[in-house]
C-alpha cells in the first residue's frame, strides 16, 4: 500500500472518528443503539453540500451540526415522551431522514469538484498534508472536549443514565433530559462527520450513510480491543479508543482494497466484526462452561 493511500485512509479515518465519538455517547454511554445515525450522517453531508455549492462551506458545517442535533432531538422525543421503543424511534427518524435528505439536496447526489471547502485554506497553507492536519485538529479537539464533558455534572448524569436506570430518578436526574442531551450531542457529531466527509471527497450521495451505525460500532469495538480494559476503565482511553479504532478501520478497508478484496463486501466484513465482537463474551462463557463440564466428567 502506498503512502498516498495510507494518508487517505488516515484522513478519512479521522473524519469517521466523529461517528465513533457519537456512538461512544449514544451506544457506550447511554446504552442506546441509535439507528438515527445512518440518516444523520447523510443529513450532515447533504446540508454541507448544499451550502458548499452556495459558497458557504463553513456555514454548511455549522448548519449540519444543528441539523444532526435536531434529528437526535426527534429520536429522543419519540422514545422519552411518546413511548416509542428506542430502536424503533431511531428507525422511524432514519426512514424520515431518507426523504428529508433527498429534499435537502434536491437530487440523489451532488458533486462540487471545483468549489472551495473547509479544507481549502489548510490545503493552500500546508499543501498535500492540509486535509490531514485539519482533520486531526478537529477530531483531536473534539476528543478532548468530549473527555472533559463526561466529567462534568451533566456528563456524569448521562453516564449514570446509561449505567444504572434504577438509581437515576432517585438521584434527581431526569432520564428524559439526559437521554435527549445525549442523543442530540451524538447525532450532532455524526452529522459533523458527514459534513466534513462530503467536503473532503467533494460530493454527497443519498446512500452514503447506509450501514454507518455498524461501521461506527466496528470502529468503537476495534479501538476497545486495541486499548484493552483501559478503554472501559478510563474516560480518556475510552474516547481515544473510539477515534483510533475509526482510523484503524479505514486502514483495514484500504488494505483490503489494495489486496483487491471487493469494496462492496466491506459492509459484510464490518457486520461480521461487530457481531463477533459483541458476541465474544457470550461465546467465551459458553466455551469455558463446556471445558469445565468436560473436566468434571473426566474427574468423575
Amino acid at each position: 500500500m502506498s503512502l498516498l493511500v495510507l494518508r487517505g485512509a488516515v484522513e478519512q479515518g479521522l473524519i469517521y472518528a466523529l461517528v465513533a465519538l457519537g456512538l461512544h455517547i449514544s451506544y457506550r454511554t447511554l446504552d442506546i443503539a441509535d439507528l438515527t445515525t445512518d440518516g444523520t450522517f447523510t443529513l450532515g453531508a447533504a446540508i454541507s453540500a448544499v451550502y458548499v455549492v452556495a459558497g458557504q462551506p463553513l456555514l454548511g458545517v455549522a448548519m449540519a451540526l444543528l441539523g444532526g442535533a435536531l434529528a437526535g432531538f426527534v429520536t429522543a422525543l419519540l422514545q422519552t415522551r411518546l413511548g416509542v421503543q428506542p430502536i424503533l424511534a431511531g428507525i422511524i427518524t432514519m426512514t424520515a431522514l431518507y426523504s428529508v435528505n433527498l429534499a435537502v439536496m434536491g437530487k440523489p447526489n451532488v458533486n462540487f469538484l471545483k468549489e472551495s471547502t473547509v479544507f481549502t485554506a489548510a490545503q493552500e497553507w500546508l499543501g498535500e498534508y492540509g486535509a490531514l492536519f485539519e482533520a486531526a485538529l478537529v477530531t483531536g479537539a473534539l476528543c478532548v472536549l468530549l473527555a472533559l464533558f463526561l466529567r462534568t455534572q451533566l456528563g456524569l448524569s448521562l453516564r449514570a443514565t446509561g449505567d444504572n436506570r434504577d438509581m437515576v430518578a432517585a438521584s434527581s436526574i431526569n432520564p428524559a433530559f439526559t437521554t435527549t442531551v445525549g442523543l442530540c450531542l451524538a447525532n450532532a457529531l455524526v452529522a459533523l462527520a458527514g459534513a466534513l466527509l462530503a467536503q473532503y471527497q467533494k460530493f454527497a450521495d443519498n446512500t452514503m450513510g447506509t450501514g454507518m451505525v455498524v461501521i461506527g460500532l466496528a470502529s468503537l469495538i476495534i479501538g476497545e480491543v486495541l486499548f484493552g480494559h483501559r478503554a472501559r476503565r478510563s474516560l480518556v482511553c475510552g474516547v481515544a479508543a473510539a477515534a483510533v479504532g475509526a482510523v484503524v478501520y479505514r486502514i483495514i478497508v484500504a488494505t483490503a482494497i489494495a489486496l483487491h478484496v471487493d469494496a462492496k463486501s466491506m459492509k459484510l466484513v464490518s457486520a461480521v466484526i461487530v457481531a463477533a465482537a459483541i458476541a465474544a463474551p457470550a461465546l467465551r462463557d459458553k466455551l469455558l462452561f463446556y471445558q469445565k463440564r468436560r473436566e468434571a466428567s473426566r474427574n468423575a
Binding site: 449514570a160 432517585a170 438521584s171
Partner: peptide, 19 residues
C-alpha cells in the same frame, strides 16, 4: 439500585454532590 457500577466511587459521589 443506588449506585452506578461502572463509575468510580469518586464519580458516584461527585454525581450526588454536584447535583
Amino acid at each position: 439500585k443506588g449506585t452506578a457500577p461502572h463509575m468510580t466511587i469518586e464519580e458516584n459521589l461527585a454525581l450526588a454532590y454536584l447535583r
